[in-house]
Amino acid sequence: MIQPLAYIHPQARIADNVTIEPFVTIHKDVEIGEGTWVGSNATIMDGARIGKNCRIFPGAVVSAPPQDLKYRGEQSTVTIGDNTTIRECVTLNRGTALDKNTTTIGSNCLLMAYVHVAHDCVIGDNVIIANSVQLAGHINIYDYAFIGGTSAVHQFVEIGAHSMISGGSLVRKDVPPYTKAGREPLSYIGINSVGLRRRGYSAATINEIQEIYRIIFLKKYNVTKAMDIIEAEFAPTVERDEIINFVSNSQRGIMKGFGNT
């Protein structure tokens, strides 16, 4: 159902069963998958690739040019997976040729009102980003992460899978998987045990993750020493290896343990 008061460029590629409300603007180089709903006054600009059964609320701007002085008008995209909800006044900037050439939001995500996602960010599946979170460019957020409202995330930061960041946080360092982060400066405050239980992780696995992070954050070892101890004392598992790889490959450095400034 497409309302006559909407503007849709004749070359935009709109699938069947898409609902487009009045006063929507859809530019030329746009693809929208089946079953997606686009609310009034949303703007879908060139380079948008929107999946199936998404919900885009009024005032959202999808695939605007990046706010990057190095951008020279090159063709680039924003890709949104299936079943993702983009709430009111969210702004999603497309990628740049100097990095990924695309900004990616996964499937089954919820981006609440006034979220900003800058150029070349990659957001995984089942991610929740609460109201007014501001993401700078080149950020990676892995599956099932949660970012609390009004948080600001520095460019090039990595936020691990199943992690949880408290509202109002200033995220300047990488946040490893399965952790909870809070306080100022941003610090380790435990593992996301409630989220892990909800997603079917066993008590034994949760306990192992907790023991690994005690070594990283609470024992006051440097990162290299902590990684050596973990590799020596814990048998390889998916979770252990994910933590080791994330921490060892961190470019910005990981957040601190509380009290370890």
Rank of each mutant, 00 (worst) to 15 (best):
residue 71 Y to A: 07
residue 13 R to V: 07
residue 4 P to A: 06
residue 118 A to C: 01
residue 106 G to F: 06
residue 156 F to M: 02
residue 140 N to E: 14
residue 234 F to C: 04
residue 193 S to Q: 13
residue 170 L to Y: 06
residue 71 Y to Q: 10
residue 13 R to K: 13
residue 136 A to T: 10
residue 233 E to I: 05
residue 54 C to K: 01
residue 151 S to W: 07
residue 227 M to K: 03
residue 104 T to R: 15
residue 112 M to K: 02
residue 64 A to M: 04
residue 256 K to H: 15
residue 197 R to I: 04
residue 242 E to N: 14
residue 256 K to D: 15
residue 165 I to R: 04
residue 149 G to I: 02
residue 225 K to L: 12
residue 217 F to I: 02
residue 107 S to K: 13
residue 13 R to P: 00
residue 200 G to S: 12
residue 228 D to L: 14
residue 240 R to Y: 04
residue 64 A to F: 05
residue 147 I to F: 07
residue 241 D to L: 08
residue 12 A to T: 04
residue 187 S to C: 00
residue 232 A to L: 12
residue 239 E to P: 01
residue 212 I to E: 08
residue 215 I to H: 06
residue 85 T to C: 06
residue 140 N to P: 00
residue 192 N to P: 04
residue 58 P to A: 00
residue 229 I to W: 12
residue 167 G to Q: 08
residue 42 A to S: 14
residue 71 Y to S: 08
residue 250 S to L: 03
residue 125 D to T: 05
residue 183 R to V: 14
residue 190 G to W: 03
residue 63 S to Y: 06
residue 147 I to N: 03
residue 89 C to E: 12
residue 148 G to H: 09
residue 174 D to S: 11
residue 133 V to F: 05
residue 205 T to W: 12
residue 138 H to R: 07
residue 86 I to G: 00
residue 204 A to D: 15
residue 33 G to E: 06
residue 79 T to Q: 13
residue 159 I to D: 05
residue 180 K to F: 11
residue 70 K to N: 13
residue 57 F to M: 10
residue 124 G to S: 11
residue 170 L to N: 11
residue 105 I to D: 11
residue 200 G to T: 11
residue 136 A to N: 11
residue 99 D to M: 12
residue 57 F to V: 00
residue 235 A to L: 13
residue 97 A to R: 11
residue 33 G to V: 04
residue 61 V to D: 03
residue 209 I to L: 04
residue 193 S to H: 12
residue 206 I to S: 08
residue 152 A to R: 13
residue 247 V to W: 01
residue 175 V to R: 01
residue 149 G to R: 04
residue 170 L to W: 08
residue 80 I to S: 10
residue 20 I to A: 07
residue 82 D to R: 11
residue 110 L to K: 02
residue 104 T to Q: 14
residue 123 I to C: 09
residue 54 C to M: 05
residue 184 E to Q: 13
residue 251 Q to S: 13
residue 132 S to P: 09
residue 29 D to Y: 03
residue 212 I to T: 06
residue 168 G to C: 02
residue 197 R to P: 09
residue 45 M to W: 09
residue 224 T to Y: 09
residue 145 A to K: 00
residue 64 A to W: 08
residue 114 Y to Q: 15
